[in-house]
Design a protein around this nucleic acid. Structure first.
Length: 624
DNA sequence: GGGCCCGCAGGG
DNA sequence: CCCTGCGGGCCC
């Protein structure tokens, strides 16, 4: 090795990525988005051939005139309005929701909330669908969606029949609340109970922030609804005032119903959209990067685009882990062996790949006795003979620690999430680097733990170093999701290298620490037992899963962590699904082709319209 | 004015 | 792929 040193390119790549990831997410978000086949769409929603037959109710949507991404936050500026070059101004009014959609103020044409549960909500409509709403113009109380029985092909239903939770769109609103995102608001003439609603049509009223949200029993008296306090924060005056200026920050109104409210959530940290004395309301941090891939229509490039989008959803740790792929099993390397030619493999994979070889060699050599050691064993990745190395392969412990630490971090990131029934506050998510923690929030619920537990209990999974006996020596480093300071990592690394050169001892910085530095730009701040983390443990989160610094203090968590992380297929597709399916194959559920859903349960016979199939339970029931 | 029912977009 | 949804035209 000394005579022919090789660079471990996997490590190089990981280090490079870790550095890059700090800056990758800070790009601006105003790039123009062009909608696919937009030009084929009608100028007005209901002029498609099909819609002409059935009327506007069945219209396809018309062209989108603005170039914002579908998940764009905040006002729509002139630069995204190629048609008029003025943007969407406060007070602009459209005939109906379909037309409103065409100008991007609020995209969904039935739903009241536009958003994504792990990303935030971009806009809401006040159109009288929920009697709990309470409109005071500059601020209003909004009600979440759900809690209603929509069986029987209904699009909406006035009557609550179960509790709303902070999930789906309600979760999206909560994220906008926590982060202080601007939320566009449109009011519809259908909101009869508000004196701020327009006479007719749908009107854009500017952006608001959600200052608080909570749950309480709704007006109907039986079931809980999600509630949101919206307060206006737009640079343009509201349509109903004669002011010549937009909003100033104002004290929050006193909300009576907050007494007796549960799951109260307020913003964490400084709001992404806030007031500046000189410039007015503006983004204090870069607006969230759109998660919607911009498709081109060309299948090849679109494939690429989707792939990128998928990557964007991965956490830093996951991206880094992907680089530690074993090119034999294509999974994240377990017990890494680094060959003299600087290729990395799982120990079992590499050794396993020569199992048959030695005997074959011997046979082919026939009676002639060559020295056994001279059998050539090529590295799976290159022509180098690694026979000598294989005699006494040493696990690359540094790399193993690094991988394990990344695995723990990845799990931790996936654990920092908001519970859907609201009890728990989200993590410290407002502090600048929103991109990182959204990815953290988009993982599944704890429920998934159960099957993981079953499925992997017997497996020999890699464990987090924190659990190992030697873990406390250098491990149990809390890895914070906090990517800031620029040059620090590089410097630290250099120092580390220098040190390493001099002393042959264990380096000053352990592998997990290096990860922390690389990924965070910060040395790890918290260690085992820090109370800040413990406090995050909350009443309705009895599962002990989140928060604590030392990650794997319980078996369940450990199992999940290793399962989830290890199954990260290095090609990018999580293998987990496959395995789950494999397990499910033995279960009885599969017999019928289709899952029984609320719609299809009773009505699947006799009717072939898809809409009917999925929505006709009520009729089927009512028919008796 | 109330009930019905449809296509469609988009989340998950 | 299925589910959801504070539309909207039409029929009564």
């Amino acid at each position: 090795m000394a005579s022919q040193p090789r660079i471990n390119s996997a490590l190089v790549e990981v280090i490079r990525m870790a550095k890059v990831s700090k800056n990758a997410n800070s790009a601006g978000s105003t790039a123009a988005v062009h909608y696919i086949r937009n030009d084929d769409r009608p100028e007005k929603a209901f002029t498609t051939e099909r819609a002409k037959k059935t009327g506007k109710a069945n219209a396809s949507s018309g062209q989108i005139f603005v170039t914002i991404a579908p998940d764009h936050f905040g006002p729509i500026l002139a630069e995204n309005d190629p048609k008029r070059n003025i943007g969407v101004r406060v007070g602009e009014t459209w005939e109906d929701r379909l037309e409103c959609r065409q100008w991007g103020a609020h995209f969904p044409h039935v739903a009241g909330i536009a958003g994504q549960s792990s990303y935030g909500a971009q806009s809401v409509a006040l159109s009288g669908g929920y009697e709990d709403d309470e409109d005071h113009g500059e601020w209003f109380l909004y009600t979440g969606s759900g809690g209603r029985d929509l069986s029987g092909n209904k699009r909406t239903n006035k009557e609550q029949s179960f509790d709303q939770k902070f999930e789906k769109m309600n979760a999206a609103l909560r994220i906008s609340c926590l982060r202080g995102y601007p939320v566009r608001v449109v009011r519809s003439h259908k909101e009869k109970r508000s004196s701020y609603a327009p006479e007719s049509g749908v009107r854009y009223d500017g952006v608001y922030r959600i200052e608080k949200c909570w749950r309480k029993v709704g007006i109907q008296g039986k079931y809980k609804v999600c509630r949101y306090l919206f307060v206006r924060c737009d640079n343009e005056p509201a349509p109903w005032t004669s002011d010549d200026h937009g909003d100033r920050p104002r004290p929050l109104p006193k909300i009576k119903e907050l007494q007796g409210a549960t799951d109260v959530t307020e913003r964490k940290g400084r709001p992404a959209w806030d007031y500046d004395e000189k410039e007015g309301w503006k983004w204090m941090v870069p607006p969230p990067i759109s998660k919607k891939p911009i498709l081109t229509g060309d299948p090849e490039t679109d494939k690429q685009v989707r792939k990128m989008a998928k990557r964007a959803h991965m956490t830093v740790a996951e991206k880094l882990l992907k680089e530690f792929g074993c090119s034999i099993c294509w999974k994240v390397i377990k017990e890494p062996l680094t060959t003299p030619c600087a290729h990395n493999f799982c120990k079992t994979c590499l050794l396993g790949s020569y199992d048959s070889q030695s005997s074959m060699r011997e046979r082919s050599r026939g009676g002639r006795t060559l020295r056994a050691q001279k059998i050539v064993k090529k590295c799976p990745s290159c022509p180098t003979d690694i026979c000598d190395f294989l005699e006494n392969p040493q696990i690359n412990r540094e790399m193993m620690e690094l991988i394990e630490s990344l695995q723990c971090k990845a799990v931790e990131e996936s654990d920092t999430k908001v519970t859907s029934d609201g009890s728990n506050d989200a993590e410290e998510c407002a502090d600048g680097d929103s991109e990182e923690d959204d990815s953290a929030m988009e993982k599944e619920d704890d429920i998934s733990l159960n099957d993981e537990e079953q499925g992997t209990a017997g497996d020999k999974k890699t464990e987090c170093p924190d659990d190992d006996s030697d873990a406390n020596a250098d491990g149990s480093v809390k890895i914070l999701v906090d990517i800031k300071e620029e040059n620090q990592p590089a410097k630290k690394l250099k120092a580390d290298d220098a040190e390493k050169g001099k002393t042959d001892k264990k380096t000053k910085m352990s592998a997990p620490e290096v990860v922390a530095v690389l990924v965070e730009g910060n040395t790890a701040k918290q260690t085992k037992g820090s109370k800040g983390a413990e406090n995050k443990e909350n009443k309705q989160q009895p599962k002990k899963r989140k928060g604590d610094v030392v990650i794997a203090t319980n078996a369940a968590k450990k199992i999940k962590s290793s399962a989830a992380v290890e199954d990260l297929d290095v090609r990018g597709t999580p293998v987990r699904e496959t395995r789950k399916n494999g397990e499910a194959a033995g279960s009885p559920v599969v017999s019928s082709g289709r899952r029984v859903t609320r719609g299809s349960a009773n009505a699947s016979e006799a009717d072939d319209s898809p809409a009917r199939r999925t929505r006709s339970r009520a009729r089927a029931d009512g028919g008796l």
